[in-house]
Design a protein around this nucleic acid. Structure first.
Lengths: 134, 134
DNA sequence: TTGCGTGCAAAGGTTTTGCATGGCA
DNA sequence: TGCCATGCAAAACCTTTGCACGCAA
C-alpha cells in the first residue's frame, strides 16, 4: 500500500539525525540538498504529515515561525507530557509519576481532562540555564 | 504617547465581549462590521500585537488555523498556567498550589525552568465532557 | 501494469509592510 | 502643529493543491 522511496527514507533519516532538536520543513530540504539528495518541499510536507499521523514525529506550532518537527520514534508520546526547551529545542519526555498525579488533580479539582499528546510545557532546560549563567 | 482612537476601543471592546472564548483577527473584523464600526484588518492586527505585548490579551497559535486571541485583563497571566478547552475555547486560570509544586518538581528533578506564560495545557473542560456524554 | 509517490507551478490563506491620508492631543 | 494611527494595496510567508510524469511492487 505504501511504497518505499529514496525521498521517504531521506526525510526520515534527516529527522532521526536531528532528533536532539527540531527541524523545519525548509531545514530538511536544505540538509538533504547538502547531502546530495534533492527532495522537493512538497514531498517533505507530505512525508511529514504521514509521520505525524503515525506518531513517529511530533509537530510543534510556535508563534511567529514555521512549524517544526521532531523525531520521537514510537515512544507512546500521546500518553505523557513533554517539556520543550525554548532555547535549544530539546524535548524532554515526562514519564513521571508527578504528572500522572497532576492529571488526576486537574480532573478532580478543575473538572478538566487534559490531553498530554497536545500539550507541551515550554521553558528553559538545565543545560541552557547553565550556559546563560556563564 | 499612545492615542485613543475609535478603532482601538472597538477592538478591545470586542475582545472583552468574547472573553469567554477566543476570537480570530477576522472574527473581530466581522463582529465590528456588524456593529457598524468598520475597522481594517491591518489595524486589528496592529492593535492585537500591542495588547498581547501589554499582557492584556493572550495569543494562541494552533495547528491548521489562524491565530486566536483572548482577553485576560491584568490577571498576571505570566505567573500561572492555563488550561484551554479544545472544544469550547474556555480558558481556565490555574492559580493553584498544585502547580506551584509542579514547577518546583520540574525544576528540581528535571532541571527545567518552566515558563507558565508560554505554556498552555490543552484538553476538554468539565462542561464539555458533560455535554459529550449526553 | 497498476497506482502511489514525486515535483513543479500555481493557488490558498494568514500576516506584515509601504505609503499616503486621517485624526488625536 | 506634530506625530501616531489608519487602511488600502501589495508583498511576504508558509503550506496545500492540481496535474503530469516517474518509479516501486
Amino acid at each position: 500500500m505504501a511504497y518505499n522511496t529514496k525521498q521517504k527514507e531521506a526525510v526520515l533519516a534527516c529527522l532521526k539525525e536531528h532528533s536532539e532538536g527540531h527541524v523545519h520543513a525548509a531545514d530538511i530540504a536544505e540538509h538533504l540538498a547538502k547531502s546530495g539528495s534533492k527532495v522537493g518541499l512538497t514531498t517533505i510536507y507530505r512525508q511529514l504529515d504521514k509521520l505525524v499521523e503515525e506518531g513517529v514525529v511530533k509537530k510543534f506550532v510556535t508563534e511567529g515561525s514555521s512549524a517544526c518537527y521532531q523525531y520521537v520514534g514510537d515512544g507512546h508520546c500521546g500518553e505523557h507530557f513533554h517539556l520543550k526547551c525554548e532555547s535549544c529545542g530539546k524535548l524532554i519526555h515526562l514519564k513521571c509519576r508527578t504528572f500522572d498525579r497532576l492529571s488526576a488533580h486537574i480532573l478532580e479539582e478543575h473538572g478538566f481532562l487534559s490531553d498530554p499528546g497536545r500539550t507541551t510545557l515550554y521553558g528553559i532546560c538545565g543545560d541552557c540555564r547553565a550556559k546563560e549563567v556563564q
